[in-house]
Structures are given as structure tokens and as C-alpha cells.
Write a protein that binds this DNA or RNA. Structure first.
Lengths: 221, 221
DNA sequence: GACATTCATGGAACGATGTTCCAATTGATA
DNA sequence: TATCAATTGGAACATCGTTCCATGAATGTC
């Protein structure tokens, strides 16, 4: 009847390792997660970790799975309007990746993770409820999930290349300033939208894209 | 009058280094690009490379820039229809990343690269020509570039996690088979679209998403 | 033409990483 | 208690990005 986890009160377990890894990733980003740092935090050796986790890729996959699962647990099937439900799911993923930027990079390294299947299904179910003809389901679903995870990855990249302590709006103003100084003959558009780049909110921008795709799906009859 | 590159016929140069790096990346993927492999291919030492390139990040950025620039050079301003022009630009990026999958990962590591500005501007100019109200320009542009680079990154990820010699359609069939075997109660949608997943063409799928966004932009008046 | 100076090279060396290996320890079983 | 498998912890290995520096090549100066 004794479980394996009872062998010691402070026993190592896959779950404890994944949680420690997430803590390190959140605190210091991708570069901070090393087996030595992980072993130090868990007061053990790196060899012991390998007994529970195959390698670093598996560890990152498990950490990503954990975060996505947690983010999706908050999304109940409560929404009646499928469009509203899609917005809720998309924003849930956006916020999860905003809180854990390293997750964004994982999507472009190892898709098809089990937790993502639930996101895929959740979006797909609402697409079906949207009333578009069956022949358009796959395209509509694909565009949505591609946008959601693609935008997530890019947002995470932006978050990651920012110096830890610095202000986001200041960094954005820097880039916008660069756009405003481009050659007017070559870059008329970027010069013109530079102020909007400086002022925009990532979350609103993300949602605006979702709404554009939903509007496009609405034209399919 | 003697240029620095004339000092030796076989002189090292940033350009030669970047080209060698691209060759290695294309042949063996991201993992294959090491300064030792690069030095061996160029018949020199790793220290000499650092004279021309700051570090590995700069090298990857330069390689990405090279590929994107080349891809964009084929996209003239010839298209009269802005929608058609957007499709051409988007497909140009898709094909470039399809040919050099490692480029996709770079976008989610270092955006705002100089070559990307030209892509941004090219898309932005056509959005303006689309006839949508000025207040919607930024959102429409943002949705398009987010989708293009996001989808590119995900496609590159799929290409990368595939065993080098194996058939793509076989790998896709494997995943689709997994979807078809999911619990019908939990995953009705994924089960249903599994055959389409197995049969779909990435390029067509990508373009369908572009068209959905364009359709959505068309509804903004 | 001889010399000093700058540019450029190539390979040794350093610190850090992912991973493997194995002796020692722990807890369950008989 | 004696035995055995499960688990631990840390040393060791190969490889990586990067730095350092002694050496060679080209250029400018008298």
C-alpha cells in the first residue's frame, strides 16, 4: 500500500522536478534552466534528476504541458456564444505565455504536445458551433490555432529579448523611434504607423487579430 | 585603391562566413552549426571567425537576414491587385522558410531584424492599398504579419522535428492516426478532421489562412 | 629597401553545459 | 536480519561558445 513517493518525505519526483524547473524558468528565463541549477534547488545531484526525466527536451516539454494544462483548466465550456468562447480560449493562452514567456519558444520547438490537443479541440469545437459549412471547418480551425500559437511565440520573443529590468513601453518607443527615422521613400507605411506601434497594447492587438479571422470565417457561406 | 578583401585571394570575410553558415544550417539543421564545424569548412580556426562576427547570435541573425533578403528580392512591386500582392509576399516567405527551416526558429528569437522591415513595409503598403479605413490599417497589418511569421515558425518546427530521411506524409499520417484514435467523447472535432490533417498541403493551408484574414479585413468599413 | 604598424589568422585554453556512469544509500521483502 | 531492487548524488566525459595570444601578412613611412 505504500506508494513510491512515500519512500522519503523529501523524495524526488517528476512532479517536483517539473515545478522546480518552472520556477527557475520563470525567474531567469530559458538560459537559467540547467541541470546543475535544478539539482542545487532540489538539493540533489544531476544524476538523480535523470532517473525521473529522460533529458532536457522532455523536461521542457513537461513544463510546457504543465503550464498549458493549468491555463486550459480555467476555460470551462460555459460560454454560449462560440465567438466569445474562442476569444476566452485565445486570451487564456496569451496570458499564460505572457506570464511564462519561455513557453512561447517551446511551441516552435515541439508542437503536437498532449496539452495542446485540448486547446486544438476546444477551438475546433467552437468553430463547428460557428455555423460555417463543414468543408470550411479545417481551414478556419487551422487559421485560428496557427495565429494563436504563432502570435504567442512572437510575443514571447519580444518579452525575452527585453532586458529584465527595463520598461516595456520604453523598449517599444525605441523601436517606434527607429521606424519614424526610416527613409520616407522606402518605408512610408512603417513611418506612418510608428506612433501606433509605440502606443499599442499587445493583448488588444492579439485580440484584434482573432476578431479579424473570425470576421473572415463569417464571410464563408 | 586596394580593398581590404584583396589582401588575400582566399581571405575570410563576413559574407563568406555567412554563406558557409547557411550551407551548414541547410545541410544539418541548427544543431550542426558550430564554430568548429564552420572553421573546418572554411579551413581556418574559430578565433579568425570572431574577427568578422561578434558571436553566434550575430551569425544566425546575418544568415537569417541573407535568406529573407534573397526571398524578398524576387517580390517585385508588379502586382496591381493588393490582395494578390500580399499572397505573393506571404508565399515568398513561406517558401523561403520551407527551404531553410532553421530560419523559422530565428523569428521567434530575434524579431525586428532589418530584413524583416522590408517585409513589414511590403505588407503594410498593400494593406493601405486595400481601401480599408486608416484607423484599421495597423490592426490589419499586425494580423497579417503575425500570421505569416507565426505560421512560418510553426511550419519550420514541424519540418525540424521530422527525422531527416523520412517521408513527410508518413509522419503526418502518424499524427492523424493518433487523432483518429482519441476518445470520441473528449475529442470529437480532432477525430473528425484527422483525415483532412493527413491529406492537407501545408502551403495551401497557409494560403487559406491568409485569405481568411483578407476576407476579415474586407468586412471592415 | 628596411622598418614599424596595423590587420588578420589559427589554434590552444577556459568555463559551462548536457549527459553518462557508478559506487553508495535507502526502503521493501523474505 | 539478510537480500535485493529502487533511487540517489556527484565525479567524469565530450562538446560547445568564447577568449586569448603568439604568429604571419599586408601596408605606410623614411
Amino acid at each position: 500500500m505504500t506508494k513510491r513517493t512515500d519512500r522519503r518525505a523529501d523524495a524526488l519526483s517528476r512532479e517536483r522536478i517539473v515545478e522546480a524547473a518552472i520556477a527557475i524558468l520563470d525567474a531567469g528565463g530559458e538560459g537559467a534552466l540547467t541541470f546543475r541549477a535544478l539539482a542545487a534547488r532540489l538539493a540533489t545531484g544531476s544524476g538523480a534528476i535523470y532517473w525521473h526525466v529522460a533529458d532536457k527536451d522532455a523536461l521542457l516539454a513537461a513544463a510546457t504541458d504543465h503550464v498549458v494544462t493549468q491555463a486550459m483548466s480555467g476555460v470551462g465550456g460555459g460560454e454560449a456564444d462560440p465567438r466569445a468562447a474562442i476569444r476566452v480560449i485565445a486570451l487564456g493562452m496569451f496570458d499564460a505565455i505572457d506570464a511564462h514567456p519561455w513557453v512561447g519558444a517551446q511551441f516552435s520547438r515541439a508542437p503536437w504536445q498532449p496539452a495542446m490537443l485540448r486547446v486544438f479541440e476546444a477551438i475546433g469545437g467552437r468553430v463547428r458551433a460557428l455555423g460555417v459549412p463543414e468543408g470550411a471547418w479545417f481551414n478556419a480551425w487551422s487559421a485560428l490555432v496557427t495565429y494563436i500559437f504563432g502570435a504567442a511565440g512572437q510575443n514571447a520573443a519580444n518579452a525575452r529579448l527585453q532586458a529584465p529590468g527595463t520598461d516595456r513601453s520604453a523598449a517599444l518607443a525605441d523601436i517606434a523611434g527607429g521606424w519614424a527615422r526610416l527613409d520616407p521613400a522606402d518605408y512610408p507605411f512603417l513611418r506612418q504607423v510608428a506612433p501606433q506601434l509605440a502606443a499599442h497594447d499587445d493583448r488588444d492587438q492579439f485580440l484584434a487579430g482573432i476578431d479579424l479571422i473570425l470576421a473572415g470565417i463569417g464571410t464563408v457561406r
